[in-house]
Design a protein around this nucleic acid. Structure first.
Lengths: 119, 119
DNA sequence: TCCATATATGAACACGTGTTCATATGTCGA
DNA sequence: TCGACATATGAACACGTGTTCATATATGGA
């Protein structure tokens, strides 16, 4: 339970700043979804899957082999990535080929890599 | 332990695709850091903190009040955000004011919100 | 100097999550 | 139709993580 009772005796900032911050937080659902998206991206295995898929369309079995992960682990990850609309499956006989779903992923990765490399 | 032994009998794709995927995965450290960055962003509390800070420079106490979180929880989150170079503290007397550290955060959020809204 | 306030941090605990194992589903070939 | 293979999925378990509580540090005011 958050202790909303104790607050600053004197708020540090102008009320307008507080108001602007509150307005930015208005769309709670979108913020929750964004956090969920980042959480989906916040795993090394899934980052590696998406990176591989950014270079080539691959089936589950190839992914497992390239990434040295079990087929089961790869499938579980792909399930989350599908739910987040980050990858798209295309069935072909016994195989299922995965590709990136849209360009947002690439931009997110480029930006993240820029950030972690620039220090 | 990943079972790298069992692989596709016949790999699904051209060897060049496999090679391209492997090359994309070469910089393991950067990929790990990117995953860590996304993990830091993958929490509703921290998303809300960053959103508030994108609208105004705020001290810890104001953040706690605006977000209806305990001061302790906010501080713990800010610690992670500092480590990820996402926010920057400025000390002023008893207060510490936080602001976004660079423009990468804004771009990441814009892109993430675009993604979750476009379905 | 002493106290109140603002922030940071460590410990403990509850909860979510990634992995493995086992198994189900579905498809091709014999 | 039957068996081998590719993929998906549920259960169980080990581990990481966010919260709270207690406390430490530091700064300003009386």
């Amino acid at each position: 339970m958050p202790d909303t009772d104790d607050r600053c005796e004197t708020l540090c900032l102008h009320p307008e700043a507080i108001t602007r911050a509150r307005e930015a937080l208005a769309d709670e659902e979108a913020l929750f979804d964004a956090a969920e998206l980042f959480r989906t991206l916040g795993d090394q295995g899934r980052v590696r899957i998406l990176t591989a898929l950014s270079a080539a369309v691959l089936c589950v079995c190839d992914l497992a082999e390239i990434l040295a992960m079990s087929q089961s682990a790869v499938s579980h990850h792909l399930r989350l990535l599908r739910a987040a609309k980050l990858v798209r499956p295309r069935k072909d006989g016994k195989n299922v080929f995965y590709s990136l779903d849209d360009e947002h992923v690439r931009l997110l990765f480029r930006t993240a890599l820029d950030h972690v490399r620039e220090e």
